[in-house]
Amino acid sequence: MTYRPIENWSLHEPAAYGSDGGRFVANLNYALYIAGFFTGITAVVGVVLAYLRRGSASVLVRSHLDWQIRIFWHCILAGIAIVVLHALVIGLGALTFGVGLVFMVVPWAIGAWWLVWTIWAIVKGLQRLSRGEPIR
């Protein structure tokens, strides 16, 4: 296999499945991630599908599947941080007879950041996929 810079990648290499090189799967995953805001479990289905399909996808679709995997793990880490901070602030509130609950704004701010970043990442991926561009 020869080295090819990203500018020279063939974005429409044949894939082991589907004539679209897997674009349907990438679009489906973005839809599953959007539904994940309401159900949670569909995001897990999406990341499993991304892991299963990225080996046989075209270069273009593989970049999107890798992006979707990255989105999932960033969301898991943000969720853990939010839960831990909520527990710490509630504990602080219990120790200070409720005064420490003013710090509840910290996990809420991280939650708002997580929501905005995740929506941005999904929209960015959908836009680039619709234009036939990889995620860099």
Rank of each mutant, 00 (worst) to 15 (best):
R70H: 13
A43S: 15
V59D: 01
V84A: 15
V44T: 13
V105Y: 08
L101C: 00
V102T: 10
F24E: 01
W108M: 09
I119K: 03
L126H: 01
Y51E: 02
L126E: 00
L52G: 00
V102D: 00
W113V: 12
G125I: 04
Y30V: 00
G132M: 05
Q68N: 08
V89H: 04
T96I: 02
S63Q: 11
G21L: 04
R23C: 00
W114R: 15
S56E: 09
S63D: 07
R136T: 05
G98E: 03
I69Q: 03
Y51M: 08
G22C: 05
K124D: 11
W113G: 02
T118C: 10
H74F: 15
A87V: 15
F72D: 02
G36P: 11
R54F: 08
D20H: 11
N27A: 05
V47G: 04
Q68T: 08
V59Y: 14
G111I: 09
V47L: 03
W108G: 05
L92V: 14
L32C: 07
I82A: 07
G111A: 04
I80R: 02
M1D: 06
R131E: 03
F37A: 06
V61P: 10
W108Q: 10
R53F: 07
N29T: 02
I34T: 14
I69P: 04
F37I: 05
I119H: 03
G125M: 05
I119S: 05
T42W: 05
R23K: 14
V106I: 15
V45G: 00
V99N: 02
I119T: 12
